[in-house]
Design a protein around this nucleic acid. Structure first.
Lengths: 147, 147
DNA sequence: TCGAAAATGTTGAATGTTCAAGAATTGGGA
DNA sequence: TCCCAATTCTTGAACATTCAACATTTTCGA
């Protein structure tokens, strides 16, 4: 039987808080690596999703990169200005807009992947192979359980 | 020996992404509970930290509740307007401002604690006692390792 | 077939956050 | 002691995000 949580638990023991703190820390590290290319983390995510070469609708993309629709629309506007991605209308459903990555975007994505990989390597060193794997597994399960 | 990460790892296998996703999910759940009192998650954190009755400087508080200084200043302004907290100048170091929780703030915090506790209970049920404990432990270690 | 409702994406206003600079105070070295 | 650098917090402008409303297209039942 699960013990019912005490309402007076300190902040630092709440799962929501620990997640926020860990996310903040890791995200900052990643951000500082990617800043070598002057690109925010969300743009790297977008490029990575699009780098399969397929067209992705704005809705799917928003879901995949954890952004709200209007936020994504405006971020894509900027990326289009930078010629990293481009829009095409979906031929089968003309409500939809399909996003594609450009050659310039692909090249940038490649460089960003290296920077991100070097961060993961850094985490693996400091935190350990085993703990990292275990943590990822637990997070995946939590995400499944929560949605 | 830690295996060096592949630069082409899918987004969904990156620790940074999993953390962001889990955090987003759990934070939304909490947010929707706390919305019964019309209070954002960050204000609950602030109240919780201050509910030890001690005075906390803005700097310490910002650290504790994971907000930048200017953001905290403005959020505190709102909370002062709502009579949830109040400012006092530190007698020993007059650069500092000490924050205190009001009676009204304490009462609200109590109600919020219940809402938050019910969320933790909900997670424990869906996700399991053991996994939750293990996840918290791993997150704490990660935070230590990363800072 | 027609029309109302749902789905998809964008826009503009309101709101919130961040960056850089400023004001006040403290701490220490010359 | 005096002055300059560091610390602490706040402010205002620039920037980003969110909410609600809109336009377009599709779906589906009458």
């Amino acid at each position: 039987m699960a013990k019912s949580p005490n309402p007076n638990t300190p902040l630092t023991e709440h799962l929501a808080y620990l997640l926020a703190q860990a996310n903040r820390e890791i995200n900052r590290q990643l951000e500082s690596r990617l800043s070598a290319e002057g690109v925010p983390v969300e743009q790297w995510r977008i490029l990575k999703v699009l780098s399969d070469g397929e067209g992705h609708s704005m809705g799917d993309l928003a879901e995949a990169v954890l952004l709200n629709h209007p936020t994504l629309t405006k971020m894509i506007d900027r990326m289009v200005s930078d010629s990293l991605v481009y829009r095409r209308q979906d031929a089968h459903d003309r409500r939809k807009v399909l996003m594609f990555i450009s050659d310039r975007g692909k090249a940038l994505c490649k460089r960003l992947n290296s920077l991100a990989a070097s961060q993961e390597a850094h985490i693996l060193e400091n935190y350990g192979d085993k703990a990292t794997g275990e943590l990822k597994r637990l997070l995946e399960n939590l995400i499944d359980a929560a949605s």
